[in-house]
Amino acid sequence: MNSAALAPHAHQILSEATLPGLPNHYRGKVRDNYDLADGRRILITTDRISAFDRPLAAIPFKGQVLTQTARYWFERTADLCPNHVLAYPDPNVVVGRRLDILPVEVVVRGYLAGTTSTSVLTRYRAGEREMYGHRFPEGMRPNERLPQAIITPTTKAFDGGHDEPLTEAEILGRDLLTAEQWRTVSAAALALFARGQTLAAERGLILADTKYEFGTDPDGRIVLADEIHTPDSSRYWFAQSYPERFAAGAAPESFDKDFVRNWVVARCDPYKDAIPEIPADVILETAAVYIRAYETITGATFALPDPAEVPLDRVSRNIEAYLAGHPQR
């Protein structure tokens, strides 16, 4: 789907999801969350896009793409690890179990890649060879496949701070997780990643790395939370062009969702300056990339709604119908 096809839908943006009839509202960077008294949490994924520690814009259908891509993966990995999902009352909404989120973010990597300060490629380029409790050999090239998938955990920065690299010894020594929790989380993460790589390969994709969040339910059971294998939480490359591009030292071909980020960086210092108004064509091109990612990853066709539909009205109506049929216990 191209951006021209999305032009009639440019106004169909879910930029916020404040619903006064729902209790215990918490507004995150992307999601609006509501906690019900019986332990259910309503998570509404909006179309907001954030970068540079600030909101930038809203991308039509981004929230639906993330919710439905995660649904595709939750349904195909439920045999490997229990997840928080209870229902999908709307394309942008998941109802899940409320969990106590574990203070460790689990990143699984299959390749020497990344751009952030915690990525293995950034640290490898800086001369580090011991990272996250793993020893990396000399002479590796950017985006090279690792001998096996590894876990590179970081702290979970609940207060908006920056994640910090961790090792297994630090996780246990600082009592972030018990030994049994770490064993369970590690085994689940590697199994989920292996399943993800296998199914992605069937779609002509390489799942290079991803992050998982886990929590515990009231019984202490480890449960997969948040989202899984979405374009925002994972790095996907196109398998067909990877060998040639790797041999040439070029970056792998991927879903380029950074139109908004790149446009902003080219025009201001996003950490200091006011963000200029982002043009509609940049917004629509980014929306088209998200939809193409959904269709490539899942193999499903993204159905555009009636242009007269108001996303927030639909979300509110569907949640109301869900709660009527599933009242609080």
Rank of each mutant, 00 (worst) to 15 (best):
D90F: 04
Y132R: 00
D35V: 10
P252W: 08
A179H: 13
P243Q: 02
V106F: 04
Y111M: 07
L6V: 14
A300C: 04
I297C: 11
V95S: 05
G63K: 04
V223E: 03
I59P: 11
D209C: 09
I206W: 06
E295F: 04
V120W: 01
F158Q: 03
V315D: 02
P270I: 08
E144C: 13
Y34W: 02
N24A: 14
Q64C: 14
R314Q: 15
S15D: 12
G133H: 03
D313W: 07
N2E: 13
D79W: 13
G133C: 07
E285W: 00
D32L: 05
I278T: 08
I13N: 01
R27V: 15
A57Q: 12
A10F: 04
R245N: 07
V282F: 03
R98P: 03
L36Y: 04
D53I: 06
L323G: 12
I49R: 10
A78H: 15
L112Q: 09
Q328K: 06
Y34A: 01
F255I: 00
F52H: 05
A247S: 06
V282N: 10
A4P: 00
S117D: 14
Q68C: 09
P137N: 05
R203D: 01
A303N: 11
Q197T: 15
P147V: 06
G127C: 03
L146D: 05
F74K: 06
S119R: 14
G325P: 01
G173V: 02
A5E: 15
A4I: 05
Y72C: 03
I228L: 13
K156A: 07
Q181M: 05
I44V: 15
A200W: 02
G160A: 07
G196N: 10
E295A: 05
H84Q: 15
V289H: 02
R174Q: 11
L284V: 10
Q148C: 02
Y72I: 06
T301A: 06
D175Q: 12
V260T: 08
T67H: 00
A293C: 11
A10H: 08
R317T: 13
P91E: 12
L190C: 07
P89G: 13
A324S: 12
S254H: 13
V95C: 08
A58S: 15
